[in-house]
Write a protein that binds this DNA or RNA. Structure first.
Lengths: 235, 235
DNA sequence: ACTCAGCCGCTACATAAGTCACTGTCACGC
DNA sequence: GCGTGACAGTGACTTATGTAGCGGCTGAGT
């Protein structure tokens, strides 16, 4: 199973730490000190790093690759809460409220992450007000994202939610013809539905001329059209 | 319309401030200083305090009464994000990420709230690390709540979600036979559906012997049974 | 070159959820 | 008394979503 991933000797780059909004305001020496506390973990695709409900080892951040943070129903259906990429942190909530991991985490591709132990974080927050401010900002952004997830789950149709995911993706990938590479299964878990329904929605979006379905990729052909489709998908 | 509510001369009690998790760690003198910056606002039932998307005046907390924080679709359907009661704060996100109000806020009953201006908060966070820690805790708790809202929207049927709301309510009201007083309309907005569907779900829960429908109240008859019903409602 | 697993496309069908339209019941004010 | 408005209850119908089942493609590994 490879439950915990492989723990590698501490090889976390100071640069990787600085790219985190948490630590960006710290000085060189302070960063070095933090780096000494960090454990590096590598994961293969599909490997499970954390399981919801278990006690919290600490805060993680992504060095390379990407991971999905999700919850599972007893029947096996998944809901993705966030997809964490390089520079993003996850599992930060339980560090501050003392509870168990709120969700499970699994690598979407071969990835490397860093683990900052709980006690180290608490210490940092106490000593450096800048760190606390950085964390408040991260939390605020996270809350906003979750709020928009809630409202799209509640107020948009599946087609609209799929479109929304494609839209926000095409913002981050600024190429002329942005292509998204996720399996329909994962896409389904992101918008809270099943693979087949995602397939139907994609067909509808394609027929409307907003996107194009390749083999395993989705291309946003007409951003504007896509945005219109999402608008019309409100309940 | 009474857009902004009435602004009363500063009559915020120091005790009210201390009951906020944000400020509970401050000393008497510091609390007095904060109190000077706070504006009090009173609201009648149904009065709108904030509108989503508008610029953020600051952070609010509830002194008495209760308010709903929600988003609306263009078609007028609502999704409630939280119901804020005495001692709880809301609209804290935009203070930290600088964006507009993430949601609208309306009084569910005659209420009194306090407004702490944005600048005051920023100043407090910088000067008192205890305040920052308190806020991080509040945010962490809020994130957890939103995560559970997301997963119940995505993984539970409407009946299950209605049951869940009743369950969590019956936790806070520890009487032998807890009774909930919300209109079905508001209940629908909490679980992301319509009044009629809520009515159907309540009938099903009543037929199962879990709850009893009074005129405008709902009584939890059998907590255990109710919890079972929710369990079976997973997708 | 084969098998196999993982992913996708599609049709047909089942059911949860949403919509519509109407009725009954209160509480309130005139 | 009567009208009015807010809230609840319910049956009939429509639609979105979920489920089942199958076949085809592709890439990795033997």
């Amino acid at each position: 199973m490879g439950e915990d991933g492989d723990i590698i000797a501490c090889v976390i780059d100071i640069g990787a730490l600085r790219s985190l909004p948490y630590f960006s305001r710290l000085k060189e020496a302070e960063l070095r000190e933090v780096a000494r506390l960090v454990q590096a973990v590598t994961l293969t695709r599909g490997e499970v790093l954390l399981t919801g409900g278990e006690p919290c080892p600490g805060l993680y951040f992504v060095v390379s690759g990407s991971l999905k943070v999700f919850q599972v129903s007893p029947e096996g259906r998944e809901q993705v809460l966030m997809v964490a990429g390089p520079g993003q942190s996850f599992n930060d909530v339980p560090v501050f409220d003392g509870g168990p991991n709120p969700a499970s985490v699994e690598a979407l591709e071969p990835s490397a992450v860093g683990l900052v132990p709980k006690e180290a974080i608490e210490d940092l927050v106490r000593r450096y007000p800048e760190v606390a401010r950085g964390m408040l900002q991260v939390f605020a952004r996270r809350l906003r994202l979750l709020v928009s997830l809630v409202t799209s789950l509640s107020l948009l149709s599946v087609e609209g939610r799929v479109g929304q995911v494609l839209l926000t993706f095409s913002d981050t990938a600024p190429q002329p013809r942005p292509r998204l590479r996720v399996s329909q299964q994962d896409l389904a878990a992101m918008v809270g539905t099943t693979r087949e329904v995602v397939a139907r929605s994609l067909r509808a979006l394609e027929e409307a001329g907003a996107v194009r379905r390749l083999q395993t990729e989705i291309e946003v052909v007409d951003r504007k059209r896509l945005a219109e489709m999402v608008e019309q998908a409100f309940k």
